[in-house]
Design a binder for these strands. Structure first.
Lengths: 294, 294
DNA sequence: CCCCCGTTTTTTATACATAAGAAACATATG
DNA sequence: CATATGTTTCTTATGTATAAAAAACGGGGG
């Protein structure tokens, strides 16, 4: 009943590992592979068995060598490497953002399960986890209500975001010179400049960089509640902008500029400057989001 | 498979409703009862049937009258009126706070299900919901880790709490004179004074009043994320203090005093005063919590 | 037409089942 | 004896089943 997505993902990853090895070379131990692939040894063995069956690996007594490079062999398609629970997340987001749902819509576990082609248990579990994003609400002994990806959602989100990020940025400025975070800020600036230089081709990479940037600022004084809130932000941006490509390139270019200004402000350690730069950035991010909702 | 806790709770509640009626009096319509009991008509009918079977209600064609007062009849015991998911919550909290779990303990769904005598599904669902409290963390394809009810948990909690509550209190002070919230603040003061007058007997009622007070402050400018965070606070105080009765009376008495000072500060609309009173209250609450953790 | 009640249909809460995956244990090999 | 592999056991992810509860439907009576 459980799907073998873990295996398939590991299989695909293993192909990449093998590509770095030469023909006839001996493979690392099962345990080493386990660590590299981030799965259990049970799964590693299954992958090895699969590769042996295809002649990619030749298993002799107590050693395994590369038999042939996995050129032709197809990787498992991406979809098959996603756990059902992850697929449900995507399906749900699509359902939500495609506009099938307006504020107040009742969410029916059974119906969603049917629509997505999965078991109700999974939908239920997903909804329970998804609740923390503040977009749905449960009613006792009845289904859920979709509260809508509305302007007030965006405003409430940004109100919290401002509190949290201002707090972190200020703490950042107060960091001692020796802190390793200063180095990280510098490489963050480098990453931004790099992306900016190649913005036409890589503008879609910004979303991930954005998340990393804000997480770095927050890392100055870890707080599990703030970190958890960043998941909310990441979710919103990740999915929302997947369905709103309008002006994506320009929008990201502007944001990169704002980030760079912020980095400079933080490095200056001037609280007033930091506040100004942050407010500017958050205001513009908020306006962009609001604009795309309306 | 599903338990009939909804029915039993409704049955108990119905007893209270009947107590307010006279012998021979006609009962409200099913629909009216449905609204009063907060359940579906299906459940109302089940309750009515149960009462008829016991002679409490006499059902004639198209009307039902009280046959006898439900004196002797036993209410269903409290435990049987709690949904399994609610029981699991209690069991888990007990497991956690009794000290069976130290920071880093691995949580095993199967084992918990066995220990609590429920299905794994339920435990899983509970853990997924419980995750938002920041006390547990999931690891891919493996169980959960209990992060511990530690000092850093308390500190992180209070850091957020301070941000959120200061924000609300300030907004409160800026409220126009006509706002109905001013009235509510006044009755809140009255409730505090009442409790204070009878503190020896009713000190345990403070926990609920505390939660109501802080939610009222927050209500000034609703924000779903702040409201959701108050669930975290409520959980912490509700359960933690259930296992830490030390100085409960004195502690609550102090807190009431601080609340009253806060109310006064808010009514004065003097930001500096409000800040001072709030910081005082939160500091003392934090110290109390930290003290009881150590 | 609106509310009331009887009936039927749908959905949720909970239990249970099982393949995939993780972890623990055992054995072998250098 | 330490590390690698083979084997067994336990746990998680996901599907299915079903009683309880909710919701929808339908016919009367005021």
């Amino acid at each position: 009943m459980r799907t073998d997505t873990t295996f398939k993902r590991a299989f695909n990853d293993m192909i990449d590992i093998i590509r770095t090895l030469d023909l006839g070379e001996e493979l690392p131990s099962e345990n080493a592979l386990r660590a590299q692939l981030g799965v259990s040894r049970t799964t590693v063995r299954k992958v090895l068995a699969g590769m042996s069956a295809r002649g990619i690996i030749i298993s002799e007594a107590h050693r395994r060598i590369i038999g042939e490079q996995p050129q032709q062999i197809e990787r498992y398609p991406k979809e098959e490497t996603l756990a059902i629970s992850e697929q449900v997340e995507t399906s749900f987001m699509e359902w939500m953002l495609r506009g099938d749902a307006c504020p107040g819509t009742e969410i029916n576990e059974t119906e969603l399960a049917r629509k997505f082609g999965v078991a109700t248990t999974i939908v239920r579990e997903f909804l329970n986890r998804f609740q923390k994003y503040g977009l749905i609400e449960k009613r006792q002994n009845a289904g859920w209500v979709f509260k809508g990806f509305t302007a007030s959602f965006a405003l409430e989100l940004f109100e919290i975001r401002e509190m949290f990020e201002m707090r972190s940025a200020r703490l950042f400025a107060a960091l001692p010179d020796g802190s390793p975070l200063w180095k990280q800020i510098q490489s963050m600036r480098a990453a931004h400049l790099e992306l900016l230089a190649d913005i036409d081709a890589r503008f879609q990479d910004f979303s991930e960089l954005d998340s990393r940037f804000h997480r770095l600022i927050t890392a100055v004084a870890p707080n599990r509640f703030i970190e958890s809130f960043q998941d909310v932000i990441a979710m919103v941006f990740h999915y929302h902008y997947q369905w709103n490509k309008r002006d994506e390139r320009a929008r990201n270019e502007v944001a990169i500029g704002e980030h760079l200004a912020l980095i400079e402000a933080i490095e200056s350690r001037n609280i007033a400057l930091i506040d100004r730069a942050y407010r500017l950035h958050l205001t513009s991010a908020r306006e962009t989001l609001l604009h795309s909702i309306a």
